[in-house]
Design a protein around this nucleic acid. Sequence first.
RNA 1: GGAGAAAUGGCAGAGUGGUCGAAUGCGGCGGUCUUGAAAACCGUUAUGCUGUAUCCACGGCAUCGGGGGUUCGAAUCCCUCUUUCUCCGCCA
Length: 424
Amino acid sequence: MLTINLIREKRNFIVSRLKIKNFEAEQIIDKILSLDSSRREIVSKTDMLQADMNRISKEIGSLIKNGRKEEAEAAREKTYSIKEEIKLMSEKLGPVDTDLRNEIVKLPNLPHESVLPGFGTESNLKVKEGGITTAVPDTFLPHWDLIKKYDIIDFDLGIKLTGAGFPVYKGKGARLERSLISFFLDEGTKAGYNEVMPPIVVNEDSGFGTGQLPDKEGQMYNVTLDNLYLIPTAEVPVTNIYRDVILNADDLPIKNIAYTPCFRREAGSWGAHVRGLNRLHQFDKVEIVQIAHPDHSYKSLEEMVDHVESLVVKLELPYRIMKLCGGDMSFTSALTYDFEVWSAAQKRWLEVSSVSNFESFQANRLKCRFRGKGDKQTQLVHTLNGSALALPRIVAAILENNQSEAGIKIPKVLVPYTGFEIIN
RNA sequence: GGAGAAAUGGCAGAGUGGUCGAAUGCGGCGGUCUUGAAAACCGUUAUGCUGUAUCCACGGCAUCGGGGGUUCGAAUCCCUCUUUCUCCGCCA
């Protein structure tokens, strides 16, 4: 959510920046500005009336104390009409407030000045490519066949228990999953992240805090009996830790890492490209979240990108880093880098991580602020997050790229975790 | 799940209808004293919205768990929700 101050002060700047995201903001902004000015008018009138009211009430108090009953009664008569006016004003204010908010939340975040225009993935900028390329045998299989061959992930069993997109990890498959989670958490901890284990169901307030509600309501599983939501990513609970919080500048940046299962309804996105592990309703992910000082948030972003890169390098996966163009970036992001790993058997790049700086867009909604030493005023923090990493496609890539006649070779760094070197 | 009690500023804790944004203590910040520190003493110490000024500043409104109500006036009374504690029940 953009701040109303920015919208008031930099109308044209916002309009031109949002063009990079292919978003026409003019109409919305003008509506916002007009709602804002009527809102302020109503608020200031109400405040003046309320001030009158407070003054008279105090007078009544002292008149009664001094036994001047008639004068008190006269003053009381005066309040009735003021009270009526206040009521009218507040009836006007309600709808204006909600309209204003509803319009503001329609505006996407401004892209960072370095973001290039574009409409889709083809306009994304490849900033780096690396990783060893493995020679796969001619008889290579896609991961959905490999998991059956070695009986390590069972989709049919998941269908029996729950439904499509809820696989059961078995034997070495389960162990590989657990090993990756531990590996990612350990690497994050080494890099200075504080491990947290949050709830995986959240309330409505948290859903609003990170922006999943009200827009993406249909993408989350809703526990209707208690009105709770299954988290689509650890970003939701971990970032909401800092909702309605004023931090000390000295404590920034705050670096948290969390493993959680993630739940996504993925309504309407089932199809050819989402076979096997490529898209699931429940999957495991380790997420890194930073709360940063606005002056240093891009340093944090680079640091997070480097961290994620170190993970794919250690896993010996062929990867590339894409800087997203305006049209491909999410609504909330100011700058996003995507990590993709090469799937040898599917012959395509799989997105495994998305690392973003949201600047103050999320913080404004969360009301997460900080104060410098000696500062009187508070300022919004910058929030950042990234997957480090999402498991299913990493598993798919490991399986596909490391297959051989003998079986699937486990990357060296994982062996201490798995306790085996090969899946056969 | 049942019965009862409670929720106040960073923390502890007073405040049962009027001058209460809120005593007091602790903590924090600034200062005096000191070679420096401690102690002592003095001062200061919430957030949001809004207006004038837009550098410092000054004023108005709102906020005592959330929401609603009664009243000229609510931290204080009523309703409701949430949370915590105690007892009972159930149970990893």
